[in-house]
Nucleic acid binder design. Sequence first.
RNA 1: GGAGAGGUCGCAUAGUGGUCUAGUGCGCCGCCUUGGAAAGGCGGUAUAGGGGCAACUCUAUCGAGGGUUCAAAUCCCUCCCUCUCCGCCA
Length: 433
Amino acid sequence: MIDIQFIRDNPDLVAQKSVQKGYAVDIPHLLELDARRRELLGGVEMARAERNAHADTLRQGKPSPEQIETGKQLKEKLTAVESGLEPLEAEYQELLRAVPNMPLDYVPVGATEDENQVVKTVGEPANFDFTPRHDYQLGELHDLIDKERATKIAGSRFAYLKGDLVRLQFALIQYVMNKLGDEQFIATLVKENNLQVSTKPFTPVLPPAMLRTEPYRASARLNAEEVTYKIEQDDLWMQASAEHTLCTMYWNEILPEDMFPIRYLGYATSFRREAGTYGKDEEGIFRMHQFDKLEMESFTTAETGLDEHKLHVAIQENLVRALGLPYQLLQKCTADIGKPNAAGVDINCWFPGQGKYRETHTADYMTDYQARDLKIRVRRKSSGQAELVHTADATGFAMSRTLKAILENFQTADGHVIIPEVLRPYMNGQDQI
RNA sequence: GGAGAGGUCGCAUAGUGGUCUAGUGCGCCGCCUUGGAAAGGCGGUAUAGGGGCAACUCUAUCGAGGGUUCAAAUCCCUCCCUCUCCGCCA
């Protein structure tokens, strides 16, 4: 949720930037509601003050019939003004929540994801002297992926992953957990990128996989119900990313300043309905209903939020480079960053099977937009004041997409797959599949 | 699944219709005291919104929402959550 005061102060800017993000919000109408709401609220509060003052005079003893009569009249008056406020309040809240976060100035303006800016292209796609195989072909060759039986059991977009592919996943998890848990590693990236942030390492977290409606809504991440599974019986949602259960972790809390920055590396199985994607990426394990993901989530003070986001991106790049995957770094445009985002970056890795760069990573910077509705605040040491925190999240590795990228990029003519060197120590030194 | 208890200020607790403008203890902050500290004393100690240059002030918040009443932490209804015991279970 955005600050209503900001909208009051910058109505044109908010309208303009909302449109740039693809959210048509009637700002003049919102401000009109806001003004009327405040006016009515004034009346309601005055009526309440009168009622309270009257109640004060009756503190002791029994009230006289006259006093009860006065009280009745005050009550009627209050009910009358309150009834005017109620529908207005509901509409106001709905409209206010419809306003997206404001993109930062450097975010390119664009109407579709095609206008995302390629910031850099790193690494060269391998020049195979044979037709590169897809993940499912390599999977079949080494008995690594069984989608057919998974479909029999669970339906489309599920898979049994087996053998070396599973070992590879656990190696990847272990590798990332070790890197992000190493203060020296963080310190190097902070220095290299000239960031004004702490060198504190990330704490690994296994979060719950389900969450309740109320915190989910407040996180501004439950805006696409077609992507999220719901357990009707228990009124719970399956998280579609560890980010969802991580960013909500401190819901309704005020945290001491010396806890900051709070850096988590979550690992969770994520679930997506993928409704409306029939026929899209049906082959292989690129787009699944269920996939495992390492996810960074940071809570920071306002001053360090942007640099924290940049740290996330630096970490992502470092990890992708360490594997040796060719990739593009994209500055996402206003249309693609998402409603709660102030900025966002994608990393698209090269997939030889498709001959394309496809999205494997994303990094989101929310400023205080999520925190406002989630009511997550920091208690400042100097002033004692409670201020909204900033949140930023970023993909560590989405397992299935990364496994696919490794399979396809490092394949050999005879159908083997060379395991990235950094992962070999976590696979008993195994160097190929 | 069965039975029971409970959700009050950062924490712990008191509070069963009007003196609750939510008490007390702990914690925290400031001051006094001290050579310095401890102990002690005094004062303060939330969040959100509205008004005001400010001092300050008004409103809301005792799990959530509704109701009864002149008046609700307290009574009624619905829901949510937590805990304990039993059963089942990785």
